[in-house]
Nucleic acid binder design. Structure first.
Lengths: 141, 141
DNA sequence: TCAACGTATGAACAGTTGAGCAGATATTGA
DNA sequence: TCAATATCTGCTCAACTGTTCATACGTTGA
């Protein structure tokens, strides 16, 4: 809570960049997870960033399911479902159990399960509160 | 194009698609959030699905910050930072407070804050547990 | 053995996304 | 007034993503 005393362009540690609040920056930087963790985490979020994949995973919240049933509940073609599941498998978010020609997938990541639970719970809430869910005008993109 | 709204358990076998476990499918479908919620949620996850954006948001976990400081801690150019913040602003994940020519951003979504907290906590854990963080080769496995 | 079936895969294609660049806007101090 | 500053924006392009199509694989029952 500094009283905007000064914005000094050149009081940093040799860095060419200008910093307004060096203390804050240093503190935040020291708490920032290593790059690899950021990438990892972003990766996981990326897997949840598609409505179809999300519905696949939500379906699996309640137990294992075969590919064709997952295709039905997710609204994807069976091929697309298989592709999506392969992605999730590659990231160890789901695992397979094969029986004959059937493949049963299940959620295999407690972390992701928590994220999903939290997301669902919150969407239900937000649903009532949210006045408008549309993107504001925001020119372009 | 979504028949997800009308979830009728008995209606399924009339469909051309083959279903292995109609009961499961019906149960899951009845619990599946409406399409709009799925899209919304996937959207939010999408915002967290980029390591740079993630570091911006993590920085904001501890309070508001101006664009140039955010650029420093996130490792983005100032232009890229501004672009990213605009995106986040458009989705009401962050909000701005302007003072003169400075713009101070802050986290403005409790939901996202929870997701971030959870993610960070878990990454710290996983860090110790995770044997290998690399993506497994897609071809194998 | 063969055909039907459930699933997996690779290639190709359209749509989306993020970042840089250049220029624009708005605020400040001289 | 002008120049410097802090941030924002439109444009553009390369990289990425998700889907479809065609095809391949392994299993099952006839």
């Amino acid at each position: 809570m500094q009283s905007s005393s000064s914005v000094q362009p050149t009081d940093i540690d040799g860095c060419a960049t200008k910093v307004v609040d060096p203390e804050r920056v240093a503190a935040v930087q020291s708490r920032m997870p290593p790059e690899a963790d950021l990438v990892d985490t972003a990766d996981i979020f990326g897997l949840l960033a598609d409505p179809r994949r999300l519905s696949l995973l939500l379906a699996l919240l309640e137990g294992e399911m075969c590919v064709c049933d997952l295709a039905v509940v997710s609204g994807l073609s069976e091929s697309a479902t298989s592709h999506a599941l392969r992605l999730l498998r590659a990231h160890r978010v789901v695992s397979v159990r094969r029986t004959g020609r059937m493949a049963y997938y299940r959620l295999d990541d407690a972390h992701v399960r928590m994220l999903l639970d939290l997301a669902v719970a919150h969407t239900e809430h937000t649903d009532a509160i949210h006045p408008e869910r549309d993107e504001p005008p925001l020119t372009g993109r």
